[in-house]
């Protein structure tokens, strides 16, 4: 049984989320708890897939994408402060994306091949939603907004940077594997993604700590 170093950040993030349960509820971010559970189970199973006698872990990550995307979209919707027609448009776009991801999983790339199309779509949506959320956060009518103390800023910033980096690395996943593209004797994926993951979950943890209960806020 093996636990990769970046998984400690994911476990720590889940622990922080559970510790800050009330704060997350006050900030409408409770969906992070099931999402982080899925992340941790997926990463642990994905890293130790050989223990279960599987030849590859693609199915695990494809299922992860299918299961985690609704939670990501739900959280993005909460951080966008949607009103009226925006809510309808947002959820219509999300449902369409989920249908495309499902179709790709079952019919196009199949469950046993890494679903790069779904991942590219997911990354694009993450980039768009986090950018919109950051812009809305900036132009929102608040007298003084200290970004460094704002949990939504940290969550969206790390999501944006994660989306931009993984769009290339995971989008070209198969190409990188087939052509053995490496940096310092590591595949490009192994060289970049663990560090990015560590940054993302450290960012999430910090954001959870910054969440305030209504009484404190």
């Amino acid at each position: 049984m093996h636990i990769a170093w970046f998984e400690y950040f994911q476990i720590a993030c889940l622990v922080v989320a559970l510790y800050c349960f009330r704060r997350l509820r006050a900030c409408s971010l409770l969906a992070f708890i099931p999402l982080l559970l899925i992340v941790n189970v997926t990463e642990f199973t994905g890293t130790n897939y050989r223990l279960f006698g599987w030849e590859s872990n693609y199915l695990i990550y494809n299922l992860y994408l299918l299961a985690s995307t609704p939670f990501y979209f739900y959280i993005a919707g909460k951080m966008l402060f949607l009103t009226g027609k925006e809510t309808f448009v947002f959820y219509a776009v999300c449902i369409l994306c989920l249908i495309l991801i499902s179709v790709n999983f079952f019919f196009i790339q199949s469950p046993f091949r890494f679903n790069t199309y779904s991942l590219i779509l997911f990354d694009i949506m993450t980039i768009v939603f986090s950018s919109l959320s950051l812009v809305r956060l900036t132009i929102m009518d608040q007298n003084e907004l200290n970004f460094t103390r704002e949990p939504f800023f940290w969550i969206n910033s790390v999501n944006l940077l994660f989306g931009l980096i993984t769009l290339v690395v995971l989008g070209l996943h198969e190409y990188i594997l087939i052509n053995h593209i490496e940096i310092a004797h590591k595949t490009l994926y192994n060289a970049i993604v663990p560090s990015v993951n560590a940054i993302v979950y450290a960012g999430y943890s910090y954001a959870f700590i910054l969440c305030r209960t209504p009484g404190i806020r």
């Binding site: 950018s131 950051l134 812009v135 900036t138 970004f147 910033s157 944006l160 940077l161 931009l164 980096i165 769009l167 290339v168 690395v169 070209l172 990188i176 593209i181 490496e182 940096i183 490009l188 970049i192």
Partner: peptide, 22 residues
């Protein structure tokens, strides 16, 4: 490898630039 890393750096730069502008 160089091209992929360059694209990642450029995208990262654009992301950071966006955050700095905000």
């Amino acid at each position: 490898v160089f091209t992929i890393v360059a694209v990642i750096i450029i995208l990262l730069f654009l992301g950071v630039l966006f955050l700095v502008m905000l």
